[in-house]
């Protein structure tokens, strides 16, 4: 097969797995609570930031950074639920009010990160330490492939986490309870499920996924600033709309499709139209098939 094509496929897979991880967090919260958490992109950025602090300032190995980032963003996400979502839900406010409060929370988180960046690094931009992952690309001569170790780590980590998540949601008691709450919150609570606990767990998981995606993204781009979440926020939205809001497989599929479109469009129409194509697609899918590719009617989601 053509070496360039293979190389592109590798790129799509590594970029797509980051998008997919990120979109999974969005999708998880949407399927269980029915709200869109626009602060998810801020958690993504916090993940990259915590990973940076742990590996650069504390000089820990990468896996510690990954786990620390996931725990911190998971806890931040729980905090979000307690501060920005639960009070509104208790009042029975509209879904839009929860969307607005998540925007407020996102602004807050991004600006706190900015302040911390300035305190720690004296500017709003910092790079991951050089020796964190080997630089030497793995070259497969027969296929003409060059894969950097960072991309390999990204794909493996994403794959492992996605399989674990699939197992958690479909095979464990917690996953069963989450699906029950997603299906019908009232009935679930009548059946003895602690709905508030399930919400907390959902937010923790979603935050951890977002944080992991952040660290992995930073491993590829190498540079972190408080604004890296902005672009991926909209890309993640496109991914979950494309795949079907609230569908876990849909989020993964959507992530890979968006990555595919971006990378193909760089070659064909130029990088400046890369994002325009993605958003036109978002627009089109909302008008033609709002439930997305794998989406189902509202009553049977999750």
């Amino acid at each position: 097969m053509d070496g360039i094509l293979l190389q592109q496929i590798v790129n799509v897979i590594s970029l797509g797995s980051i998008y997919a991880l990120f979109a999974l967090g969005y999708s998880l919260v949407f399927s269980v609570l029915g709200v869109l958490n626009l602060a998810h992109s801020a958690l993504f950025m916090w993940g990259a930031f915590i990973g940076l602090l742990v590996t650069d300032r504390l000089e820990m190995p990468l896996w510690v950074g990954l786990i620390a980032a996931m725990i911190v963003t998971g806890l931040l996400s729980v905090l979000l639920e307690l501060i920005a979502f639960r009070p509104l839900r208790k009042r029975g406010a509209a879904r839009i009010a929860q969307l607005i409060s998540s925007i407020g929370a996102a602004i807050l988180l991004v600006n706190i990160a900015q302040l911390l960046f300035i305190r720690v690094y004296n500017r709003v931009e910092a790079a991951y330490p050089r020796g964190l992952v080997p630089r030497q690309p793995i070259i497969i001569e027969e296929l003409g492939l060059r894969i950097t170790p960072a991309r390999l780590i990204v794909v493996i980590a994403a794959l492992v986490v996605m399989i674990l998540l699939q197992y958690l949601v479909t095979r464990t008691s917690l996953g069963q309870q989450m699906r029950a709450v997603a299906f019908n919150q009232r009935t679930a609570s009548l059946l003895g499920i602690n709905v508030n606990y399930i919400f907390l767990m959902t937010f923790f998981l979603a935050g951890a996924l977002g944080g992991l995606a952040g660290v992995l993204y930073a491993l590829i781009t190498n540079v972190v600033d408080p604004f890296i979440g902005q672009n991926i926020a909209l890309i993640g939205l496109t991914a979950i709309v494309l795949g079907g809001m609230g569908s876990i497989n849909g989020a993964v599929l959507g992530g890979f499709i968006v990555a595919g479109i971006q990378i193909i469009s760089i070659d064909t129409v130029g990088s400046s139209y890369r994002d325009a194509l993605v958003f036109l697609l978002l627009f089109a899918i909302l008008l033609i098939r709002p439930q997305g590719i794998l989406g189902q009617p509202e009553s049977t989601r999750a």
Binding site: V35, L36, A94, R95, I96, L99, L234, L237, T238, V241, M245, S272, Y273, D275, A276, F279, L280, L282, F283, L286, L287, P290
Partner: peptide, 20 residues
């Protein structure tokens, strides 16, 4: 024709397309 969250997402997409 879209409602709440879907309308929000579609219009975010519109804004980005205008910018680009």
């Amino acid at each position: 024709r879209l409602r709440d969250i879907y309308l929000a997402i579609a219009t975010i997409g519109f804004g980005e397309v205008v910018r680009i």
